[in-house]
């Protein structure tokens, strides 16, 4: 069995130190990108460095970047700044990297194995588009029902939220900014909801309930929760940045919804259900 003590006593050369730090940086980058909190990323980097025998290191993590320096006696100083652009959320990857760092700290993983496993984790596939679309549709519909919508509202919500999620999955392949995505999303659901509520049907369909249900896939839950947890663990800069980001996403959605509602009210004389 590989043992932490042995690695520490090994006289490692510069290149090994660099490999350890690269591994730590990579692990940190992957988990930060996929929605981990700041303290978790810092801990991951620290565990990995400490276990593989780097005594003096400092990791400073922001919501979109990692600063890592290390110093070993008689060796050159290692310093890297890594820009980590925001990615999608993949909680599975966060959980896996977390597991890996704990296993490394417990001394069950060699450096080469760790590299191999990290590579596998990074390639972990997202859930299929179909299952995401179905999940978003059903989830939003149930929300619509919970927020005092009736069964018919929920039915329309399923369809619209499913379409919305399909659009989100499609748009995530390209580098489209959050502003565009969320404003377009808001416009889309409001248009569809107005369309649904204006079809003459034997039962009553409520515009507001459909929109409230359909908003759910757009809501930045991960950002909001991570912002609060970052502030709670005294990472104020990242926490406030994420809070502002979440707030802006809300504003973008509101702009999208508001544009269409406003135009509709102007065109059809302000009679809204």
């Amino acid at each position: 069995m590989y043992n932490g003590k042995i690695i520490r006593e090994e006289k490692h050369n510069d290149s090994q130190m660099h490999r350890v730090l690269d591994l730590a940086l990579k692990a940190g980058r992957i988990s930060l990108r996929n929605g981990a909190e700041i303290f978790r990323v810092e801990e991951t980097i620290e565990y990995i460095c400490r276990h593989y025998g780097i005594e003096e290191m400092d990791a400073f993590v922001l919501s979109n970047g990692i600063f890592l320096t290390a110093y070993s006696e008689g060796k050159e100083v290692y310093a890297r700044v890594k820009h980590v652009p925001a990615g999608g959320t993949h909680l599975g990857i966060v959980a896996e990297v977390n597991d890996l760092s704990r296993e490394i700290a417990a001394g069950h993983v060699t450096l080469d194995e760790a590299y191999k496993r990290l590579k596998e984790i990074e390639k972990m596939p997202a859930k299929s588009a179909v299952s995401q679309i179905f999940a978003a549709g059903i989830g939003s519909a149930v929300f619509c029902y919970l927020m005092r919508g009736n069964v018919y509202d929920a039915l329309f919500t399923t369809i619209i939220a499913g379409l919305l999620q399909a659009g989100l999955v499609f748009i995530s392949q390209y580098k489209v900014s959050k502003i565009i995505t969320n404003i377009l999303g808001g416009i889309f659901i409001t248009l569809c909801a107005i369309l649904a509520s204006s079809i003459p049907l034997p039962f009553e369909v409520n515009l507001s309930n459909i929109i409230i249900g359909c908003i759910m896939p757009l809501i930045p839950g991960v950002l909001f929760v991570n912002a609060i947890r970052d502030v709670a663990s005294s990472d104020f800069i990242s926490g406030l940045v994420k809070l502002l980001d979440a707030l802006l996403v809300f504003v973008y959605i509101a702009v999208g919804v508001g544009c269409v509602l406003g135009a509709y009210a102007d065109l059809f004389g302000g009679v809204m259900i």
């Binding site: 929605g35 909190e37 959320t89 959980a95 927020m147 839950g221 909001f224 919804v257 406003g262 809204m272």
Partner: peptide, 28 residues
């Protein structure tokens, strides 16, 4: 496993999406 795994999804129903919609609605 990280708390985020359970917390992020679990907190969604309390997030005031409906309130945000009503602000826009009455503003319009």
């Amino acid at each position: 496993t990280p708390v985020t795994v359970f917390l992020v999804a679990g907190i969604l129903p309390t997030v005031p999406g409906a309130g945000m919609y009503r602000i826009v609605y009455y503003f319009i």
